[in-house]
Design a protein around this nucleic acid. Structure first.
Lengths: 157, 157
DNA sequence: GCAGCAGTGCAATGTTATAACATTGCGATT
DNA sequence: AATCGCAATGTTATAACATTGCACTGCTGC
């Protein structure tokens, strides 16, 4: 239809294909179910709950059950393609390159709208890592989740 | 028994009394149930799950039910006396002075042993706050929870 | 063929949290 | 004293989130 710019669908498909390749390179496979879950997460940047996801999956796969979703999510999280927002039992796609970059990233979770923003700030992360190291601790994962009210919700209280 | 140093019980009671006073000064009251929950949390620095707490409360209050616990926890959290570890659905007493200091504090949560360490690092927190502000966000709460392997667990894998 | 394994379907269950409504206890007002 | 108002608590049920265990399928290498 449109050759001037890639359509959103094309962007999504591109991302999925890339994710698939990246999985394969690690000996894992992005099966249809997993790909579907990832696609759903990509389409909902605010994140989705496991059971919302389940409802949506059922449209394609009527037999889907909780384990279907959780298994797919575990896989995606293992592969660095998705994250769980602990606070809210919310899952989001890691649409950014945080898993490509070596530097850990910040996840800003808005408690009002559930929006998740990924923020890259090497100065902060460097300071944080240094401080943890000084205390003998070691960052668990490259994603640090922080509760912070987003600009939109700050403006409209 | 021992007049040379305060016993652990005395320390705990002192802390509870202090908490009670602090609540009263804000027009809230640390009722027996709430005090009991706080005491249990203090005795378990690794944190407790809501239903573990419930079991223990039942020893004193056989009629206790889930809402009993959750209401007490909500209250304690509101008052800055306890904190929920989102990741693990774990509740810990805020034994430190993080609620007295103006500066937000870091909560280091070890994913292996569930231990929670409170860390005060103004440089990191300052940098973090500045970075968030630059992105238009605002820290939600003065407690920032971070998954980090603790020294003990790092030493003994 | 068929042993082994990753992925999936399915049922049951476990765990965490809240809704909804009734009741109690206590200080203030009349 | 009777009543009201209000915070806290009791009680029941259920919603929401997550896992376990086992059976089955389809593939890959022998």
């Amino acid at each position: 239809m449109n050759t001037a710019a890639p359509s959103p669908d094309a962007v999504e498909t591109g991302f999925l294909d890339q994710a698939e390749a990246s999985c394969r390179s690690r000996g894992a496979s992005l099966t249809p179910i997993r790909r579907l879950v990832l696609a759903l997460l990509l389409r909902h940047p605010r994140g989705l709950k496991a059971y919302d996801l389940l409802e949506r999956i059922k449209a394609d796969k009527p037999g889907a059950s909780p384990p279907t979703v959780y298994r797919a999510l575990d896989f995606l999280i293992e592969q660095g393609l998705a994250h769980k927002v602990g606070r809210m039992n919310l899952f989001v796609a890691c649409s950014q390159h945080c898993h490509q970059a070596q530097m850990p990233g910040l996840f800003l979770v808005c408690p009002r709208c559930n929006g998740v923003t990924e923020l890259q700030d090497d100065a902060v992360m460097g300071a944080l890592a240094a401080s943890l190291a000084a205390a003998g601790h070691q960052l668990e994962s490259p994603e640090v989740e922080i509760g912070a009210v987003c600009p939109a919700c700050r403006a409209a209280p």
